[in-house]
């Protein structure tokens, strides 16, 4: 565990707390993509199956359990409690275009050709693109509440911080995880546009609005 990773994980934790805070205070899931949230549940469930057969540390188990339960809770809030505030008509990204290639990639690139390892690999590839329905929705509506953009910024920061973590591990621990690194770089790159608007507008006190 190095500081980049610790801060990355804390940023990931913060992003989920921001997401829950946004939903509870505005009593609305407006501006959130159900598809992205459902993809995150898929990511966490397929990746953290190792909770049942591979104990790493208390920290590791607690975080994995938190990510699975909180993401399922968000789905419940979107589909049940605040259902009337969810607008599927603007959440139109075709998820099958993400799932298909991820299945294919995980069958080709994995560390062992076993069910659990293929699922792990699938979850890594899927996580790298899971934010796309959300970013697509943002692009369509052209604006977002500040709190929603803070959520996305924390999520993006988590991914960005994993990159120096891998560099650190490469040099200091002589360890490398090519699948996670490749997917992680792709995932971080997807946030570049968002971060540009976030830094130039939201952090300057302006509304998050995309040019028409």
């Amino acid at each position: 565990m190095n500081l980049f990773r610790l801060f990355g994980d804390m940023s990931h934790l913060a992003s989920i707390l921001l997401l829950l805070y946004k939903i509870q205070t505005t009593r609305s899931v407006r501006g959130l993509s159900f598809k992205t949230q459902a993809l995150y549940v898929t990511v966490f469930v397929t990746r953290y199956l190792d909770l049942f057969y591979d104990y790493v540390s208390l920290y590791n188990s607690v975080m994995k359990t938190f990510f699975i339960t909180s993401s399922c809770y968000v789905l419940y809030l979107m589909k049940k409690k605040y259902r009337p505030t969810n607008d599927p008509s603007i959440d139109t990204f075709r998820v099958e275009y993400l799932l298909g290639p991820c299945v294919l990639l995980s069958l080709i690139f994995n560390y062992r050709f076993t069910f659990a390892e293929i699922l792990w690999s699938f979850s890594i590839f899927l996580e790298s693109v899971a934010i796309l329905p959300q970013l697509f929705m943002l692009q369509r509506t052209g604006e977002a509440e500040a709190i929603t953009t803070h959520y996305l910024a924390a999520l993006g920061a988590y991914r960005a911080l994993y990159i120096p973590n891998w560099i650190y591990r490469y040099w200091m621990e002589d360890q490398v995880d090519p699948i996670a690194v490749t997917a992680g770089i792709v995932q971080t790159a997807l946030y570049v546009d968002f971060f540009y608007v976030y830094f130039t507008k939201v952090l300057q006190g302006q509304r998050f609005e995309l040019p028409a």
Partner: peptide, 10 residues
């Protein structure tokens, strides 16, 4: 380099 323990990272 060695393969990282990929079940350790979140």
């Amino acid at each position: 380099p060695l393969a990282a323990d990929h079940h350790d990272e979140l």
